[in-house]
């Protein structure tokens, strides 16, 4: 052993935080580079927002506020759902398929770090989504409830919604094969977007609409609307999201296979 060669061993892990940040940046980059995921993350929410505001001029959704004020919170909730659930499930499904998780399993990055990296990537993408959607909404005349309380409640909804949907997304990715995950994650997204009271308030779904607040989509939509329209929090939606997050985490912990 010479001690001076090019390949002379000098092993060691990078500090955990640096590893997690690298993992987050990499996963966010890959998510944004993927055309289908970008469609889901940004293009569809923008279309829903612009289209919804236009449609509300001709159709009565039974909204209590101006369409832009009533729809923007729901579209932000939709953006969270698309990233934390659909994008995460699909990306993780294919990571398992292509042996990425196995490869990373032989790297210094521990599994907790991998999970933290994934969560970081979700927040990076969500920040970008909120920036784009916020800019479009303000351009269309959006006037959210003001104040620190609104911002904090909005963040709370974002965190709880991400936790609930991400845990459910990982559950789907862990039990199904990659192709089945792709199909299921997209299908569930479409069903919840149309019928899950995420974009439109539960009042738009008629007399049984209140049942939809038990779904993670309805709870997240209502939590966002409560925060951004009224600057208020009812507590119930947040609790529903928390319960879904616990269910998703338990299911994932019991069933997820890393390879």
């Amino acid at each position: 052993m010479t001690g001076t060669g090019t390949f002379t061993p000098r092993p060691g892990s990078a500090p955990l935080l640096r590893q997690v940040l690298a993992q987050s940046a990499m996963e966010a980059k890959l998510m944004l580079r993927n055309g289908e995921q970008l469609l889901l993350a940004v293009v569809i929410p923008v279309l829903v927002l612009v289209g919804g505001v236009e449609a509300a001029k001709h159709v009565d959704f039974g909204l209590d506020q101006r369409p832009i004020d009533a729809l923007t919170p729901g579209v932000l909730a939709l953006a969270v759902m698309s990233t934390a659930f659909t994008s995460l499930a699909i990306a993780t499904g294919f990571e398992r398929r292509y042996g990425v998780i196995k490869r990373l399993g032989a790297s210094p990055l521990p599994r907790a770090g991998l999970l933290a990296g994934k969560i970081g990537a979700l927040f990076l993408v969500e920040v970008l989504q909120f920036a784009v959607l916020g800019a479009v909404a303000f351009a269309l005349g959006w006037e959210p409830a003001g104040g620190v309380r609104t911002v904090l409640l909005g963040l709370e909804a974002l965190l709880l919604g991400t936790a609930a949907f991400a845990s459910l997304g990982l559950f789907v990715a862990g039990v199904l094969r990659a192709e089945a995950t792709l199909a299921a994650a997209n299908l569930i997204y479409l069903l919840l977007m149309a019928g899950g009271a995420v974009v439109l308030p539960t009042t738009a779904y008629g007399s049984s609409g209140h049942l939809l607040t038990w779904l993670p989509s309805g709870a997240l939509g209502e939590a966002m609307r409560g925060a951004l329209i009224h600057g208020d929090c009812y507590g119930r939606e947040q609790l529903v999201l928390l319960v879904w997050a616990v269910i998703g985490t338990v299911l994932t912990a019991r069933t997820f296979r890393w390879e």
Partner: peptide, 22 residues
């Protein structure tokens, strides 16, 4: 395999490098 299908070759190598100290 063992890499993201959408990751570029050097990007993948640099990512693994970042997980190590030296």
């Amino acid at each position: 395999s063992g890499a993201w299908s959408g990751a570029r070759a050097m990007e993948m190598l640099e990512h693994i490098a970042k997980l190590h100290a030296h």
